[in-house]
Amino acid sequence: MFLQIQFESEIPIYQQIKNQIIRGIALGELELGEDLPSVRQLAADIGINFHTVNKVYNQLKQEGWVVIHRKSGVMVNPDLKPEKTPEYMESLEELLKITTAEAYLRGLEKKEFIALIEKNYESYKSQEGE
């Protein structure tokens, strides 16, 4: 899969990489057990510091999205089974509070907002059938 990094963005680079990898897994662009580039390779390809990539991989590992082997490198967790933990639900609600508040104030209707969510969910689901 392709990662698209924006250097001038407000979102920090490590967050962009992390978001795109998780979305890549959901979209099926990254398969379970698929190899990811090494820290060195990815840092050199993007043209950023090793530490930034290290940070991404460590966070992804802590959250269970990837596994890191000393020899075979980094890969998407082959036994990926993320769960709806209470902690996750809490943070999701926090996130939605801010997102919906801004959308509401900007005049976005509830329907429009739900349509957006549905569109995204459809793109994840369409991968399951394949």
């Binding site: 990662l3 698209q4 990094i5 924006q6 001038e8 190899d35 990815l42 993007i46």
Partner: peptide
């Protein structure tokens, strides 16, 4: 324009 750097993760 949105300035981006594109990299490929699928080296294999």
């Amino acid at each position: 324009k949105k300035q981006v750097v594109v990299v490929n993760t699928s080296h294999h």
